[in-house]
Design a protein around this nucleic acid. Structure first.
Lengths: 196, 196
DNA sequence: GTCGTCATGTAAGTGGTTACATGATTGC
DNA sequence: GCAATCATGTAACCACTTACATGACGAC
């Protein structure tokens, strides 16, 4: 139940049309809550239905192909403010790469080291992107309260990428060590054991 | 498309029935890929259909209420081994708490500090649980290749919890600072600005 | 016999993803 | 005119969640 709140936040920061929202979700907010334009249009419809937002009045009547700007109504702002302090447990981790490491413990590490190296590169790039944003938007001293909170969120992204870089590097080293070491063959067989 | 692979991994580690799998998913594998029993039964059906696993033959015919053990077939093992090295990009972060921080930058931080403290406690507890498992399962020197990989995965869990503890502590401090400082009221209004 | 527990399953709803459809506007 | 682009939308599908149904079995 977070997408509507993400949209409300984005619309409060700046009233926008669906496509503009989609583009803004490709950066900033989308870095930690991504959404496609289909999701966004669907959700905009629901929010309007619920009276949380409204389309800015426009002289023309056709709907398709015509730009439609939305703004947040008081009810939407209240709902968002209430959500900020609501009790909601963190979701457990859900990461396919960790699962693959675990699977590799049973069926062998074939191809995993290359994939780990690839992820290392991707995370390095993401970290660089975050750092560039930090430089650009928060380079000088602290700004408004909103700025400080947004910076805090960006720091989470940066720290997370740093965590991944550290861990992936350790994983890479361990996999490399296994590749050259002994005792691997026993884990890599794919069929039933042949008679000795 | 990771749940079937999680199940294959679990079944290779030890052939089990649906409920046993569900219980095992509440620990170990479930720590980074959780699943309910409904998901697991459905997926077991699909995997059997696809010829990746089979139910161990049993003398009786009724299906409902009767325990049914599954084991992995060569096709399933091959698929899992191929998946381990497959190219698959990491999913971007999706975290509601970060979103709430961002929203707080627009509608005010009411109730957020308490929620951050609550999350701190939850992550502390999770970290303690991971550390206990590490002590119990990997306390002495390195074991088999599988053990080393499983330990690596557990380390990711531990490091992640440590990241959260550090970041949440910083967030808590920042929020506390805002609560006592000046310049907050301007961000907390919920209606249109009153005339001065 | 019925109550609690183990065990497997069905059904409905929600959120996210992928593919495609269609209208408006601008440049040429 | 027509191609490219902007913009909004529909449809189908899949994964996950929540609630409920039902059969088997042992304790009492």
């Amino acid at each position: 139940m977070s997408l509507p709140h993400a949209i409300l936040t984005a619309l409060l920061e700046k009233p926008s049309s669906g496509l503009e929202l989609t583009r803004r979700f490709d950066k900033s907010i989308g870095y930690f809550w991504s959404a496609t334009h289909q999701q966004i249009y669907r959700e905009l419809g629901r929010l309007e239905e619920a009276g949380a937002i409204r389309a800015l009045p426009r002289p023309d009547q056709p709907t398709r192909g015509q730009k439609k700007e939305y703004e947040v109504l008081p009810a939407g702002r209240d709902e968002l403010a209430a959500w900020v302090g609501r009790i909601e447990d963190p979701k457990p981790i859900r990461d396919a790469l960790l699962l693959r490491l675990r699977a590799a413990g049973v069926v062998g590490t074939q191809g995993l080291e290359a994939e780990v190296r690839r992820h290392l590169e991707l995370h390095r790039a993401q970290l660089a992107e975050y750092r560039a944003i930090e430089e650009r938007d928060f380079g000088d001293g602290r700004g408004s309260e909103g700025d400080r909170l947004r910076h805090l969120v960006l720091r989470a992204g940066i720290d997370l990428e740093n965590f991944w870089l550290g861990w992936l590097e350790a994983a890479r080293a361990e996999l490399a060590d296994m590749g050259t070491g002994a005792g691997m063959a026993a884990d890599v067989r794919t069929g039933p054991e042949p008679a000795p």
